[in-house]
Nucleic acid binder design. Structure first.
Lengths: 187, 187
DNA sequence: ACCTGAACACCGTTCAAGT
DNA sequence: ACCTGAACACCGTTCAAGT
């Protein structure tokens, strides 16, 4: 499976495009960022993007996969931290890309590719959360429900302005269900 | 504050436009429904819409207010039902317009008008939920947290495919926190 | 294989002109 | 006050042509 010169070049070009797209999507939002703007930032003609990506949604998916890979790397390094730390870290990660979370939800009905990506994303996220909760001694059944509710609450926080106090209160409430966090963490 | 002939005519025209827009937005989605399509369904020229609404977002807000008014009317009739019934009814209402819920969230960063509408919507919804919970004997503080978490979970269900079994499980989990629903409801 | 200039169909919105 | 035809700037995407 050795990659020849040509593959490397292709991968490099795609990296340039995806880095530009990531920056612009995060800064200005998906809808407000035109394909021409991405192309300009990557130093190519607008229609060149269509050599690498079938359409704008596929470019978004490439960006999302890149962000997810980077996030999984970081998370591997903090897997040993206590649960509340991990959850608050997760919220902050999603918050940085809250733009794109809302965009993905908004395009669920309009793009099958986005719909499929979203489904597998939540599958992976739930598996990760459940494994973490079970490792802490929670039952599988309890863990699944808590993972689902936790995901919804994290996503809810992203699209609704709130104070840090409100955030702490609802997270504390969530975790107090089957699991007792160290209250001192929040002080 | 009596309305003269002219006002009545204007209101009638707006009703025609908003009914057409409501149908098209719910069926095909906001993005996929062009102003020209709304105008066509209402029997006017595309640019005529701009006499009544400053832009497409304002038309969306008019549609949302119409849906909300109708929903509040229906809800007044079921205010005496037990809490789980009311909550499941709410989910089903949101589900019918889940399209527009996701659209509103997706446009939060791009339209101040939508942002403001969303803020006041959640203010009203929370006030209604808290009042309902307090009337059932819950403390104000507890009610606020449960209302927030409940809203997020309802919205989470809207954007994530799930079985009825999953829905029942997470709703049951939510309500089991400070309040004991009649389990037989779910059977 | 990769890239581009030119074009296409469409979009939200504006404007000058009509009644 | 209300409505419209025509136009504007922009969009995602396609295609034929280049290397």
């Amino acid at each position: 499976m050795a990659r020849n010169k040509r593959d490397v070049d292709r991968a490099q070009k795609q990296e340039e495009i995806e880095l530009a797209a990531t920056r612009l999507f995060l800064e200005g939002g998906y809808d407000a960022t035109s394909m021409a703007a991405v192309a300009g930032a990557a130093g190519v003609a607008p229609n060149t993007l269509y050599w690498y990506y079938a359409n704008k949604d596929e470019l978004l998916i490439a960006v999302l996969n890149r962000l997810m890979a980077r996030t999984l790397e970081v998370r591997a390094g903090i897997a040993e931290l206590p649960l509340p730390e991990q959850l608050l870290w997760l919220i902050q990660v999603f918050e940085q890309a809250h733009n794109l979370v809302l965009t993905v939800h908004g395009r669920l009905d309009q793009s099958k590719a986005i719909f499929d990506w979203h489904a597998q994303f939540h599958q992976k996220l739930e598996a990760l959360l459940v494994a973490t909760l079970v490792a802490q001694g929670m039952s599988e059944e309890e863990a699944v429900t808590l993972a689902t509710a936790g995901t919804f609450i994290v996503e809810g926080l992203l699209s609704h302005p709130h104070t840090l106090e409100q955030r702490e209160k609802v997270i504390r409430w969530l975790l107090s269900k089957g699991w007792k966090p160290d209250d001192s963490y929040f002080v």
